[in-house]
Simulated scan of single mutants.
Amino acid sequence: MTRFAKLIAVAAGLLSATSAIAAPATADKLWRLDCGTVHVNVLNAFSDTQSYPGQARDLAASCYLIKHGATYMLWDTGLPLAMKGAPDDRTKPMSPTLRLSITEQLATIGVKPEQVTMVGISHYHFDHTGQAADFAKAKLFIGQGDYDALKQGGSGADARPLAPWFGGGSPIEGVSGDKDLFGDGSVTMIDLPGHTPGHHGLLINLAKTGPVLLSGDVAHFHENLDSNGVPGFNTSRAESLASMDRFRKLAASLKAIPVIQHDSRDIAKLPAFPAAAD
């Protein structure tokens, strides 16, 4: 073989390897679950520039079940069961209520809580951790910044909903940066800090649907994301703006379906439960 032919063969091998790396595996199914509603009676709580005077809005609390082979993973765990059937209280800035538990919805599709062996949490706020303890045997994945804040008891960081992992001995991993959860590119936690120190989104690759990019709380509704609106309770304004920029650009470059988890307009992009995206 001539030197030139050898170079061609090496280049072809590199191209083949690159193509293999660039083609991630896919998860089997993605279900969206109803994990409550938060009636926001003072929408300015979500704007440090007071952009929504006198406005109110319902924010969905959504969770997601992912099937990857024989493994079930839950992304976010919604409002606490104590809020089931809670009435709307217009005297409060925010009034959360829950209609169905996660375990009730899983029973509809024949999945038992103990079959869920992985739980990913976008961040430590109560509307994303509320029912985590129902899956106490699962391994918990949470951003390292949030893990540290929960260990230290920082302002707004309440570890009690995650007690099985914080003191209870259940397996937990703090995630720094992006994390390929199955090692095959099918499901990746995406580093999007700012709302909380270790806030993450989730990228799921599906065979038919294509990539789906779940926001966590990088933004709470379209108007926030479109205007770079930052809630006053975010832990870093600069990181929030950078993460919104990354979320938008990542969705565009991957041609992913972006889903703002609190915006019902985006949640409706996925099939209504019990149907699943595949």
Rank of each mutant, 00 (worst) to 15 (best):
A136L: 02
I190N: 02
M73F: 07
A86N: 14
G154R: 15
T103E: 15
L81F: 00
K139R: 15
A82S: 15
H195W: 01
I121M: 11
A159L: 01
R160L: 06
V111M: 09
L74Q: 12
A70W: 01
S95F: 10
I66N: 04
Y147C: 02
S186L: 03
S95K: 10
A133G: 03
Q115T: 07
V116A: 05
T91P: 01
A163G: 02
T97C: 03
E173S: 13
I102E: 10
R160T: 15
F126C: 00
L140C: 07
W165D: 05
P171E: 01
E114P: 05
I142P: 09
P80C: 09
G78D: 06
K151G: 11
H128S: 09
H123Y: 12
K151N: 13
S176D: 01
S122T: 13
V175K: 03
T71N: 10
H123G: 13
I190E: 01
F126H: 10
T117L: 04
G167V: 02
H128R: 11
L98F: 11
K137V: 00
V119F: 05
T71K: 13
G156C: 03
L79V: 11
G174P: 10
D146E: 08
P161Q: 04
T91D: 13
R99Q: 15
K112L: 13
A82H: 05
H195C: 05
L150C: 08
P87F: 07
I142C: 06
Y124A: 14
Q152W: 00
L106S: 09
L79I: 09
G143L: 10
T91A: 15
K139Q: 14
M94Q: 15
Y72G: 06
D148E: 14
K92M: 14
P93V: 08
D89F: 03
L98T: 12
D184P: 08
M83T: 13
I121P: 08
L100T: 14
F141V: 07
D158F: 02
D89E: 12
T77P: 04
T188N: 07
F141R: 07
I190L: 06
D89G: 03
D89M: 05
Q144V: 08
T117D: 01
L79T: 08
L106I: 11
A70Y: 02
M83C: 04
G156H: 08
M189Y: 00
G168S: 05
G78T: 09
D148P: 01
K92E: 14
P113R: 09
G194A: 03
